[in-house]
Design a binder for these strands. Structure first.
Lengths: 253, 253
DNA sequence: CGGCCTGTTGATGCTTATCAATTCCTGTGG
DNA sequence: CCACAGGAATTGATAAGCATCAACAGGCCG
């Protein structure tokens, strides 16, 4: 199995670097600009590095199970995590997605209210809750950054509240495509779906079939093209934006 | 108008106290235990009091309009605020409710993404964004408390994401009633609706008619009684809890 | 007593879920 | 390299759930 071999190799490299000259790995960390360690100076970064532990998740692996006791937090170095809750009868709703720089795991909470699953192979920088609390007491700038990140997550959640509460299927899918396209939306731009149809459905509060139909509808009306399952081309960005409706200033992600 | 007279009187009392021996009012503040000033000691509380301004909103008044520039924050002393967003064509979704101790207004944000409206006569303790930032730099415990509160809001928002994305009308209404009843749910307990049917609809992502029908259905099946429009009695708490479904451990509010 | 706002109830239709069948990729093994 | 298996996605038919439109009832204030 090629993939697994690759992952193990990456893990070992990470582990070796982890034990090397402290802080050097942090300085080169691609996720640092957006992570809770962003505002730390070199000395503080050295200390912070001491309490961190590198961890690798393979695509599909679960970091935290809904209902588990949680006593740690982690920054995402690379990859992507999905936070999702499920009802006893199997309905699932994605509560959030986290990319590089994202922070998962809340202090003060005893039991996880949602599953945390890797949507792609993911590297984490993990901390124990106690270590993180102690560090934050000495370095309030971590709290400051964490507060900013939490507020940002709250914004995103509120944006989706509006979607799930009041938007039609067409509006939800159009908004999702704009989200996927990101800030550099342009005519004939070629973008990829970071999620499967099923995951898009769990995010939008719809079914796979409805997602598929809405994409088909957008394709038939010439707003987008679907050259492959995992890619889309935005032929008419203005039309897509108009379909998304719901307030002009709703760029999240 | 009786109500208005009462409000003006309260406002003037507040104003006089505001100018009196500093900190004394804060010490007696009923909202303090849950507010961002909860962890401040007496000296810090004195300083904090200096940058605060008392403000009173009448029921129905708007504190912040969606799209407005915001440069201040406020703690709710008494009353209740609604955070809601509306689409250009008039659909509204409530994004959150804040009671005493709640904090409204986000640092770093240039424009409000939602309206903030008083659902009842409301007293606020208001701060300029600059003052609050400066104070927080010197008293990181404010950041700490604010982070806790923001995480709590995020939890609530995620709980509602699940509701709006995956719950039926019956489940949403049952959950709402449990929310209203609070932690002391008991058989034949008598509770009041803090929201109108329309506000409940805006919170649940439903219409007024659907809310009314679901309440009627619960009444007909003997789970609740509706002696007045603004009150309900929970005859069968277990049935109500079962109807709310969606994970046993979802007490918010 | 009477208007008016809020809430309830009823009839109908649209939107989206559900169930089912088929097609299309993707990647695996021959 | 090609064929094939198996999951993912699409498409179709039908039904459930909720919205919408409309009429009516009940409080609450003047």
């Amino acid at each position: 199995m090629y993939l697994e071999g690759e992952i193990v190799a990456r893990h070992e490299v990470a582990f070796r670097l982890d034990r090397s000259e402290s802080g050097s790995r942090c300085a080169a960390c691609p996720a640092r600009a957006g992570a809770i360690c962003a505002k730390l100076d070199d000395a503080a970064l050295h200390d912070f590095h001491q309490i961190s532990r590198h961890k690798v998740l393979r695509k599909g692996q679960t970091l935290i199970w809904q209902g588990d006791a949680v006593s740690s937090g982690a920054t995402i170095v690379s990859g992507m995590l999905k936070l999702s809750a499920a009802t006893p009868d199997g309905r699932e709703q994605i509560l959030g997605l986290l990319g590089p720089g994202g922070f998962v795991g809340d202090r003060n909470r005893k039991r996880a209210r949602y599953d945390v699953v890797a949507l792609a192979d993911t590297e984490l920088c993990q901390f124990s809750g106690a270590d993180l609390s102690a560090f934050a007491r000495q370095h309030p700038e971590v709290l400051d950054t964490l507060l900013d990140k939490t507020i940002h997550e709250l914004d995103r959640a509120q944006h989706w509240l509006m979607m799930l509460g009041r938007a039609s299927a067409a509006e939800r899918v159009a908004t999702l495509l704009l989200d996927f396209a990101g800030p550099d939306l342009r005519a004939d731009g070629d973008y990829s779906f970071p999620l499967s149809r099923g995951q898009m459905a769990d995010l939008c509060g719809l079914t796979i079939e409805t997602i598929s139909r809405q994409l088909g509808s957008l394709k038939r009306s010439g707003v987008i093209q679907l050259p492959q399952r995992s890619r889309f081309i935005v032929s008419d960005p203005d039309a897509l934006t108009a379909l998304a409706g719901l307030s002009p200033a709703t760029a999240s992600h």
